[in-house]
Design a protein around this nucleic acid. Structure first.
Lengths: 345, 345
DNA sequence: TTGAAAGCGCTAACAG
DNA sequence: CTGTTAGCGCTTTCAA
């Protein structure tokens, strides 16, 4: 059935450690003949090293676990982040296991997924976008595994985008084009019974916008609602906003969803972008330019993933040292939706 | 450092196997006192079983590997699929490792990721949406690991949505509402230099639409282009189509991206949905209703994931038996974009 | 240049 | 009820 080193040893008439040595490329000291014989039979039999046996011996799993929340809004596991994590792990000869933390943990503190109950990985990447349950933090500490927080702010050992700076830059782009009446759209903002609660990124992006406007002596105009609106309600609301005589000439949105609503509302009012309205959104790498071309501050997911793994590798090497928080700038990508305002205000 | 059964044995003065037995809940035959002592010290020391040691002994890794292409268009790893796979694995006390197959494999046949070179998982889930490289198929056969194909059609051991039936149902919905001039939009269709080549799903969805139209004695109207258009070009093209006097009164789109283009183009022409135009799209679970409310045939990703794992578990149990292909119906979800045509044609 | 011996952490068999 | 013995597949000494 499964081919072991032992079998190759028998087959070749060599000792089991000899085969092991040859297969691991160590010790060029073996005779060319022996080496060839071993490699040939290994190939012929389809030998594959048993990672469990090696782990047991080395004490390393060559594996990191990505821990995520189980609700869509909690994890938003993006293609880019996953790719970045995967690629950087791969370049360290490590692989990735996935653990979704079910809602049970949030309520029933007893529940812990097997991946965490057992000793399976060398490190932990924690991607909880919002509402990190305190039980999780305890668990991580108790688990004593090198870990890095992704997309959340901690004193150290974390990586996240520069959302505040992103908010500033987005606003700056519109200011540079000559806009003064700039609105900020986040239809998920503000209502307390929101599920999930606001993530820091939404708060920071908004704050970046507000800062920039204040510094320029301009009035911030927040466009949102007190309650959670449906897509259609948002479109209607947005149409109302854009129908006002003193409507904003440019808009920043916290997400691509909001941006699409602005885009569609504008179209239906006969406003064309960017001639009559400028628009810039925060967007993920994977979604950028996918549906519509919209200027965006792009969440640097891939780089985040790579950076997180680099930090994790450092922590695995020196478990007792903390790594300083890593804040990654958001690049700006043009989508052709920014132009000077029609009539200078 | 790392706590082992051995240490608990020393700590409690018991033998190492005794501790092991107690921890594994087997053998209630131990004295209550002993059991308590073991469990307490295990808890106190923060004991965690070493999965490698167990794997070595049992010959099972309690783990499945999800194999994906590394290009966006190749994998489209959706939230739903991942969740389904994860949850079904979890309910079998298994976990998930991820392996992205880099482009090297497509060209350099020598390259194989470590996860496949080594003996690490009990089974393989293969999610290659398009262009499965022949080398991969060989590799899978050579690897002799129980495996299930996701989102691709094979004689057996595969799970995929019923795209053809989906195309028929989508068209039927519009027919039922009274439409006769029904267009089909797929801007990625038709040009040969397309990257990636057409996935079967696009072909089947289109074929389902065409079948239905033919059966009703109606003329199919395919809306696409000979070359790959940008988002803006698609919008322009769509506007032209919808400006014709004999424009379709209803549209099926192969993807949500195309649907958004139709939606926006319609809005900009002053056509409101569903009054002036009905629209139904194929959409993923994760994206449904996310940006805009649009009627959709929803790709049953979560269920696919669960089904794939169920099949895999069966194959792991009986590696020599094949499992019949599993085709999953696509549910229809209303988004409020279907209504009878304005003037009955 | 190769083989023998030991042991990683754990479970399963059997003996007491 | 509990301890002893053995061994999973592999790597790492160390001896020959």
């Amino acid at each position: 059935m499964v081919v072991t080193v032992q079998q190759i040893a028998r087959e070749t008439g060599l000792s089991q450690p000899t085969v092991s040595q040859v297969l691991n490329n160590k010790a060029q000291r073996y005779s060319a003949d022996t080496r060839q014989r071993v490699l040939d039979t290994a190939e012929r039999l389809g030998y594959r090293p048993n990672s469990a046996a090696r782990s047991l011996l080395t004490g390393r799993f060559n594996c990191a676990t990505l821990l995520m929340g189980s609700e869509y809004s909690h994890n938003m596991l993006s293609q880019g982040l996953l790719s970045g994590i995967h690629d950087e792990l791969a370049s360290n000869e490590m692989h990735l296991t996935l653990a979704k933390l079910p809602n049970e943990l949030l309520t029933d503190e007893k529940y812990v997924p097997r991946l965490l109950r057992e000793w399976t990985a060398d490190g932990l990447l924690i991607n909880f976008n919002a509402m990190i349950p305190p039980a999780l933090i305890d668990l991580v500490r108790k688990y004593q595994l090198p870990s890095v927080w992704i997309n959340s702010i901690h004193p150290a050992d974390c990586v996240h985008p520069a959302d505040l700076a992103g908010g500033r830059v987005a606003t700056q782009k519109l200011l540079d084009a000559g806009h003064r009446k700039i609105g900020y759209v986040d239809y998920n903002y503000g209502f307390n019974d929101a599920v999930p609660p606001q993530h820091y990124s939404a708060v920071d992006r908004r704050a970046g916008y507000a800062q920039m406007m204040r510094e320029m002596g301009l009035t911030a105009q927040f466009i949102n609602a007190e309650v959670c609106l449906s897509n259609d309600q948002r479109l209607t609301h947005m149409r109302e906003v854009l129908s006002q005589p003193d409507r904003p000439t440019a808009i920043v949105t916290v997400s691509i969803t909001d941006a699409i609503h602005v885009y569609v509302a504008a179209q239906s009012l006969g406003l064309s972008l960017p001639k009559d309205l400028s628009l810039i959104a925060f967007d993920s790498e994977a979604a950028f330019g996918r549906h519509l071309n919209i200027d965006a501050m792009v969440v640097p997911e891939y780089q985040e993933g790579r950076e997180a793994v680099r930090m994790l590798m450092a922590k695995i090497a020196k478990p007792d040292e903390t790594v300083p928080a890593c804040v990654i700038e958001m690049p700006y990508d043009s989508g052709g939706t920014i132009a000077p305002p029609a009539k200078p205000s």
